[in-house]
Write a protein that binds this DNA or RNA. Sequence first.
DNA 1: TTAAATCATACTATTTTAGTAGGAATTGAA
DNA 2: TTCAATTCCTACTAAAATAGTATGATTTAA
Lengths: 134, 134
Amino acid sequence: MKISSKGRYAVEIMVELAKSGQELVSVASLSARQNIPPKYLEQIINKLVKANKVASVRGAGGGYRLTKKPKDYSIAEILLVTGDMPDLAPCLSSDATCPKKAECNSIGCWETLNALIYNYLSKLTLQNLVDKSY
Amino acid sequence: MKISSKGRYAVEIMVELAKSGQELVSVASLSARQNIPPKYLEQIINKLVKANKVASVRGAGGGYRLTKKPKDYSIAEILLVTGDMPDLAPCLSSDATCPKKAECNSIGCWETLNALIYNYLSKLTLQNLVDKSY
DNA sequence: TTAAATCATACTATTTTAGTAGGAATTGAA
DNA sequence: TTCAATTCCTACTAAAATAGTATGATTTAA
């Protein structure tokens, strides 16, 4: 079990934008800076645009920039956009109805761990990553 | 990102054995109790046997039982045996040498989260799960 | 008009996960 | 001694998830 490349890339991209302030940054530039395949990066950043985490400017000279201050983004909200927020116990979320929930010996453990992870990632901000204060 | 079935099954099996005390429990019985495909369960429990987490008795009337007291097993050690211990930043473990480690914006975050998870799972014991005290 | 850029969507190769399958070896009991 | 219950061993496979690749349309500054 590891963090997906997509999720990690999303965070890397956001920190790169945070470092760039209000300057517009292109896919090509981000791709070069972080060694992420450009077309893959495009897909990822597009999700962030649609979720209003990032503003985009089309056409020549265009690019991307943040819509908020780095301190106002949590890492959790970024990972949620790309669908890469850890969820150790999908058996209880949403639709899933485990037929043996009553006999389950471990569910509480995953719930607690989930909460721990969520708590950490929802308090950690982009600014923290810029500052390398984890 | 979720916990694998294999890892979860391993924990479920261990708790089931913990609940059974010194009694020998067969694959068939564990399979029925926890709704785990028997041949899959066999593979998983075999790893636990090889790692000396579980004792086995072959032949008719055989089965499995724990080698230690439930309070002396951490959940982490069980997940390590089956290879399902979360490792969010495989890019730093062992062999992996990321060519862009210097430019990495997120590594510290994954390291910290890893430590958090490890800390929780290495302190949580089988006995805790039996007692449902997470 | 052109070049630089984002937007949209479909496709694909690789890896991981979650099993399935078959049989050999061991042992208690009839 | 034979049989049935059981673990041990290893190979195989189907399905899903991951990590991209590919193509082209649209937008816009110069």
